[in-house]
Amino acid sequence: MADTRDIEVTVNGKSHTANVETRTSLGDFLRHGLGLTGTHMGCEHGVCGACTVMVDGEAVRSCLMLAVQANGQEVTTVEGLADEDGTLHPLQEAFWKHHGLQCGFCTPGMLTSLAAFLRDNPDPSEREVREAISGNICRCTGYQGIVDAALDAAKTMQGS
């Protein structure tokens, strides 16, 4: 018999209870258990960063955390970044404006990583932004649009 646990997780402000197999990663649980497919699994060994989500406010790899470990915790995914009325997060607006995405696959992890990073580092240098996203691989953009977007979003967020 598969080893399972009942868990209760708050995702994007909404509480979910589920019975999960203990070997299931948080990322797979979000995607296939809750249908929140915005979180992408890119490498499943913790390097590409596509699956990054925030757990209790801190950006983590959802492929390197078991769903059962999120029991009782608050998870924020890319689906939870925009306001409920659809107003985009300043980072989402900035990514749009600066062409910070092409295929869109790394984008959710970039956004969740940068949302946490900018909260802790509201006025970063370009170098700091580049190091912050060095754990997020993008094959399309060459990173420049992403870096520009992050710097622009930081300005917007400081102004607000």
Binding site: G46, G49, T52, E58, A59, V60, R61, L64, M65, S113, A116, F117, A132, S134, G135, N136
Partner: peptide, 9 residues
């Protein structure tokens, strides 16, 4: 050591 996301765990 890794990246800030891995250092968070």
């Amino acid at each position: 050591v890794g990246h800030f996301q891995t250092r968070n765990r």
